[in-house]
Design a binder for these strands. Structure first.
Length: 261
DNA sequence: ATGGTTGGGGTCCAA
């Protein structure tokens, strides 16, 4: 089974890129973030035309939005309100009655890593809520996979320059601390770092603002795939599709792929 | 130290 997560930064604008990705990578399940469209305008037919007969999404005007498209049956779809807001950042569904799949878009958190910033506090509160919400008892009951744009690069080599990034939102110590608490909440396994040693630089996002993103290579690993421990033996291969960042009118995020048995 | 880009919706906000 092949699972993809991708912050698409407008699914309507980039629907052709999604179709290209499907043709090239042949995923079974696709999770998108930042779809940026109300549900009535979501280009569902394009996905159905590629065999993704099962789907679950929630979107809103202009911002946010998360979607799951699957060739395998989905059940028990859920949409979660987070930190008191219905802002379309977290959904889940059971895939093929085998595991519970969570698609999460953590707030970016604004520019100022300062408790006086409402956006930064919202981000920290969001992560705190996730850490509390995934209770330990869930692990035994159901295998789970959590994917998405978590907007935090936790490790030193998840950013291009650890020291320079320490006060940049996405890599500040307070964010990493809360992120780690969420990660440890039910003993998640980082399915991407499982294949790539911590000593190695690894990114999934490159800013639009660089004159030459590829040459500058000032990336961050913001997009993650986590599995519960029981699924660890099932994970077989990962890919971060850096070349997709270089496609025509790209998203600033690269798709992240996990293959499982 | 600063500004650099993109998308959506609408004349600015979020990333």
């Amino acid at each position: 089974m092949r699972l993809v997560t991708w912050n698409i930064n407008s699914v309507r604008l980039r629907i052709d890129l999604v179709m290209q990705l499907i043709d090239k990578q042949k995923p079974d399940v696709i999770c998108l973030q930042e779809t940026k469209t109300p549900d009535e305008f979501f280009p569902v037919d394009a996905f159905v035309g590629k065999g993704f007969m099962h789907y679950h999404f929630t979107g809103m005007k202009g911002y946010n939005g998360v979607a799951i498209f699957s060739k395998l049956p989905l059940s028990a779809p859920q949409i979660y309100k987070r930190v008191g807001k219905n802002d379309c950042r977290h959904i889940s569904a059971r895939v093929d009655e085998k595991f519970e799949l969570h698609n999460i878009y953590i707030p970016a958190g604004g520019y100022e890593a300062d408790m006086a910033s409402e956006k930064f506090r919202h981000k920290l509160d969001f992560v705190d809520e996730l850490a509390k919400w995934f209770p330990k008892e869930r692990t035994a009951k159901a295998p789970m996979i959590a994917v998405g744009d978590l907007n935090i690069a936790p490790l030193e080599n998840d950013v291009w320059d650890h020291k320079k990034m320490l006060d940049v939102v996405s890599h500040t110590p307070i964010e990493v601390e809360k992120f780690t608490r969420f990660y440890n909440s039910i003993g998640w396994v980082d399915a991407i770092r499982h294949f790539v040693p911590e000593e190695k630089k690894l990114y999934s996002w490159w800013s639009y603002r660089a004159a030459d993103w590829d040459a500058a290579d000032k990336g961050r690993r913001l997009d993650h795939i986590w599995v519960t421990k029981g699924l660890k033996p099932a994970i077989k291969k990962h890919q971060i599709l850096r070349d997709v960042r270089g496609w025509e009118r790209p998203s600033d995020h690269a798709p992240v792929i996990l293959d499982l048995l």
